[in-house]
Structures are given as structure tokens and as C-alpha cells.
Write a protein that binds this DNA or RNA. Sequence first.
RNA 1: UGAGGCGUCGUCUAACGGCAGGACCGCGGACUUUGGAUCCGCCGAUGAAGGUUCGAAUCCUUCCGCCUCAACCA
Length: 738
Amino acid sequence: MPSSARPSNFLADIIAADLAAGRNGGRVVTRFPPEPNGFLHVGHAKSILLNFGLARAFGGKVHLRFDDTNPTTEEVEYVESIQADVRWLAGDWARLTYASDFFEDMYRCAERLVSEGKAYVDSQPQEVIREQRGSFDRPGTASPFRDRPAAESLDLFRRMRAGEFADGACVLRARIDMAHPNVIMRDPLLYRIRHAHHHRTGDRWCIYPMYDYAHPLEDAFEGVTHSICTLEFESNRELYDWVLDALGPWDPRPRQYEFARLALGYTVLSKRKLLQLVGEKRVSGWDDPRMPTLAGLRRRGVTPEALRDFADLIGVAKNNSLVDIGKLEFALRADLEGRAPRALAVLRPLPLELTNWPAGRVEELTLPWWPGEPERGGSRPVPFGRDLLIEREDFAEEPPPGWRRLAPGREVRLAGAYRVRCDEVVRGPGGEPVALRGTVDLASLGPDAEKRGGGTVHWVHAGRSLPAEVRLYDRLFAVEQPDAEADFLQALNPGSLQRAPGARMEPALAAAAPGSRYQFLRLGYFFADPVDSRPGSPAWNRTITLKDTWARPAAPPGLRREPRARPAPPAGPASAGRSQADLLATDPAVSAYLQEAVAAGAAEPSASRWLVNELLGLARGTPLPALPLSGAGFGRFVSLVDAGKVTSAGAKTLLADLVAGGGEPAARLAALGLARVDDRAAVAAAVARALAAQGPQVERYRAGEKKLLGVLLGAAMRETGGTADAAVVRQALLEQLG
RNA sequence: UGAGGCGUCGUCUAACGGCAGGACCGCGGACUUUGGAUCCGCCGAUGAAGGUUCGAAUCCUUCCGCCUCAACCA
């Protein structure tokens, strides 16, 4: 059951690369860092499974860490429920920690920052600080306390800790840059005063660290290597790194990575909205089976395995995406299919009297719990008799085309039992059918029975079946994106909980243990509620219906999302050549570099072409002057290419080498063996070698898959090391392929 | 509009300059004592334009669209 395959996503790639490079001494430590101020939901499940999965897949460790840096919102109850939920979902962690475990260490680090002039105590009120932060397009302004002596700040900071100031009187701020383009870096707050009782440290502290300061330190203190969080923390990463760089060195030095949090259709996942649903009693509590909380899902009957399969199904990436809730439902059905024994229950009974069955005679049929897989073993007695109950929905007076259930004069199979025919409809005062009369075909049961097509219907014995509490749950919201509504509460699905007061169960179900799961034939998967079940009388929660390919009301238009409208292409063709020229002209560093290259003898057009199309990509954001390859060196490289000393393929390899390690172009060219080869015989030999190694592909190409030419050409090019001209290689290749 | 991030079948996600792959959904078929399951098949995508390259989803440029950031929350 452990997800055997190594997860495949960009984070796994990063970790694999780190391991391959020997970083962090081969350690992998991740962490799941909830704040104990709410219940975990399916979005957290994605994160938990990611962090636990990655650590396990790479032989690492995962920590469960409570990020308890804000005593005013956090409570012990939540640390209990969170631990229970995590354990239920993912099992045990290697270490349980609390941010508050590190308060003393964090404080010492803060004193160090102050002493080194990297932090100061600001004695301004909150509103002023906020105002001074500026805005996206307006730089901030410095606090008048920004340059107060370190000794004074240190004294003040110590007195903050000592409790000499009231809440809000002053804060500790990092001294970074009030004009920083990233607003988060404009002298962020590190500590604030909170005279509040902390659930773990009690009244020992009255100053508490802010997330941006505390989090990187927690990671570093714990030896976390890969600190994985969601996309909205991307801007915070710069501060994360600042804190660690200011207080290092660290081994391992934690790195923060971000992935897209889960958004799921037909539900809400924000803490605030979930709290509101509970607070306003729109649901029965955090563990209401309609809630996306882990507690709710668990009580709905969802299994950890289904959640794991779901997580594998949706993957991990940086795209903001809205996951179709159908994927959760798919994972759920797939899991339950293999673990839920089959039983008989009728939700809305319609009596059926079999007139040719002796009154009072009851036959105890022996039905396997696993009809399709008798080898799994197990069965139970199910009473059959003259008076039965079938599902109201399984009878139609005027059956539509394709109807495979009961109708006047029609015959169906009673699941696990005999075939019956409907002879007569008994009507109520309004003419509506209230009961059916029919006949049973006694020869229709058993291995020798004639096989006839038609439908199968579920049933129970009228007198021997038992009533039971049944809750039919459906999606909590009626629209796919409640968050997009003006008032998400208006989008609540009024039918998300329905009861089936007349429901009847086969007798064996009375013994079902709370927490057990059954498939009620043709109805869905049901979970015996651990809270409301009574001995001998389980209460049933419908986890999920069976997939139904019949009753679907032909794709109601509201449920289908309109295809994304494609904007019309812009009218005027923007001259790309022109914009690239702009780039060369407007960026002084780039144009200076280019000038140097030209001064070193490179032809201007090819120099700018190589610069724009290749060098910029290779540089990966590093400013040109910082490259090991000087402008002049680049110019000599371009001259080499223009002189035909190296093919364009070889030139790319050469350039990459120069950008990575510097050196003199001509010398590196020789050292790498990239000099252009014009010997046709040598090329032909290389092509032959390449083809010999590509046997299957060659076969497929000859069999008609001409698109494989690219693959073969690529292999041939690689064989020559890029020293031969592509046109020559291509020609040789074509000749040899015939 | 400052900074950062993201655009691949209806949905989610692969492809790391060389065969646009998989899954969900949908559709069709086989089988069926569950209109379930199972099996088989089909449908269907690189936001746009230009450039570099023998070859571009991938590299470069511009444009378009979406998301995040201006709590003494995390």
C-alpha cells in the first residue's frame, strides 16, 4: 500500500539533483508546519502527502512542526486534532516540534541582528509603519528610528522582552531597504509585543517572532533541507533567504520551494470560510461528512488510501489549477470497490407481492459478500419471501427506451435471487402506484438457470428487513467555484444532505461494526457512522454513489464549464527584429558587452544574434559582465564561428562551456575536440555507428514512421559530437537509410 | 501600474532541443445475477506573433491572459 513508485514532480527532481550533487551531505529533511488554529482539510492533505512522500521516497525524514508563533489565535485542541489527522492520513513523523521550542534561540539570533546593525527597534505605531511602507509603485519612507544606535535598539529590545512595554508600543524590524521593489523586504517586522498566554510557553514570553523571521530559523534549527510551501509565499522567499544569510552559516542550509496549493471544485478550502460554515451551523461541525476537512472526510467514509491515490492523480506543479472533484470521486470509488462487501438495502421502498409464492414461506438464500469474487469468501443468509420491497425508482409505468428495470409486464432479476415479472400495479387514491403484484420464476435461480438478458434490481424482504438511519450526502456546494460567488453561502447545495426515512436494510447489516464500509448494491458506498451508530443499529453515511451511466441528465449546462475564450490575435505584427534591437540598445550592460565583442573583431550581426538567442539563455539571468566569458572573449568566439572553424551545433556546446568555465575560445575549442570535420567518410562512419545503436528506431523509420528522422538525426549529430555540419550528416543519414 | 510566479487535450499532469505521453471526464463496444466493476477502442492540447536551430512545448524577443504580494496573520 505504500505508494511504491517514487513521486515524479519538479520537487522530486530537485531533491534527486541535490542528492546527485552531494548537497546537504545526502540528507533529506522535509516538514509539515501547520499553525494550530484550525482543522486540517484536503488541501493540507496534498501538502502532508507531498512532504511525507518525498522524505520517504528519498530515505529522508519528515518533521511535524506546529508553527505556534501567534498565541492569540492558537489553541491546544487543534494540536490534538492535527496530530490525529496527520497520523490517520500519512502515519508517523520522524520528529514532532514546535516553533516555540526555539523561542530562546530565535531571540538570541535577533539580538545578534540588532548588534550587527541589521535590525532595529521601531517605536512608531502600527498605522504609521504601514503608511511608511509605501505601495507597489511608490517606495517606502524610512522610520525616524531606523538609524538609532544599535546599543539603544538592543536595550529597547531587551526591555521589550522584559515586558516593559504595552502591546504595539514598539516592534523589532529588519534593516533592509525601504525602497526595495519587493514590498516584503521594506524593513519587515521581526518581533511584536503580545502580552498573551501561550499554550506551551505560558507567560514566559511577551514578544513573539513573526512568521517570516521564525520560519527560516525553525527550518535551520531542525536541519530541514527542503522547505516546501505554497505559491503565495513566493515573495517571502527573498526574506527567508535574507534571514538565513544574515544568521548563518547553516548546515544544511534550508531552501524554500513553492508549489500550487489544491483548489477543488464544489467546495471551499479557506480557513475563514470553513470556520464560517461551522460557526453559522450550516454544517453539523468540523467533522460534518460534507466538510472537506480530514475529520469530515474520515467520517464520510473516505479512506487515507483514497486520498493518497487522489494526490498521486493530481500531481504537484506550480500551475494554479482547479481540480475536478470527479478525480477525488474516482479515487474514492476505486479504493472502495476493492474493500466494501456488497449488501442489500432499499432507500425508498415500493412493495412487491409475489402472488405465486406461498404466503408465510421464507427462504434463506446464502449470498456471498463478494458476488463477483466468490474466492474472497464469506456469505450471509438473506431472507426471501412473498412480500418484498424494491426501490421506487426501479419501477416505471411508462418505461423510457432502454429501460432495464421493472415495468408492467416486464421481467427483471432480483439481485442474488429469482427473476420476477410485474403483473399488476396497485394504485393509491391519486392513482399513483403504491405497490406491485407479480410472479416469481422459480426456475430462474441456480447455476443451471437459463440466462436471459435484462436488468437486475436490488431488494429486501418486507417483514424481515430492518429500518435504519441513512444520510445521503452530496457535494456541499451547487456551483463549481463557490469562492467566485459574491456570497459563497448562497451557493450552498440545498440537497447536500438528504435522509431516507423509509430505508430498509437486509438483516445481516444490523451486525455491521461502526466504521465499517459496505456497498449497497446499485446505490453506492456507505459507512457505518462511528458517532451515531448504536449496537445492532448502525447509522449509515453515504460516502459516494456508484458511477451511474443511466440516470445522468444529459450534461446540465451549468455544470459544464465553457471552454476558455481565446483572445483574438493582436492586429499589428510587432516587429521582433526591432524589439531585439531595442534590447541591445536599451540595456547598457548588454550593449557594452556587444561593443566589446565587436571591438574584438566579431561581425556585428552574428554577434548580436548569438548574444540574444544563445548567450542570454545560457546566462540564466546572470548579468553579462559577471560571466566568466568577457565581451572580448565572446567576440573571438563569434569570429571562430563565422570563420567556419566550428559548426553551429558545436558552437553551442562551446559557448555553454565558455559561459560555465571561461577560458580562451580557440583553446577550449581544441580541448573539447569540437573542430569542424569535413571528412565525408568520417561523417558516414559516425552515422553508421549511430544507426547501429538505434536499431528499433531504424526499423520503425523504414516501416514508415518518417517522423523518427529527427530522432535518428539527433543521434547521428551526437555521435559526431556536433563537429559535422548538420546538412552533411543529414545527407549521409538519408543515404544510409535508403 | 512595482516585484514575483504561471500558461500543454474539457480537467489534472508528463515530455529538461529529437516520436506531444498518461490519468480523469466524455463517447462507443465486449462482458455482466450491480446500468457497478472489468476489458477493448475512440475523442481531444502546446495562449499569440516573430526569431535562433538540421530540428522548438522546451532557447531568445515582444505581446496577451491568469495568480500572488502593500497584517504588529501564517
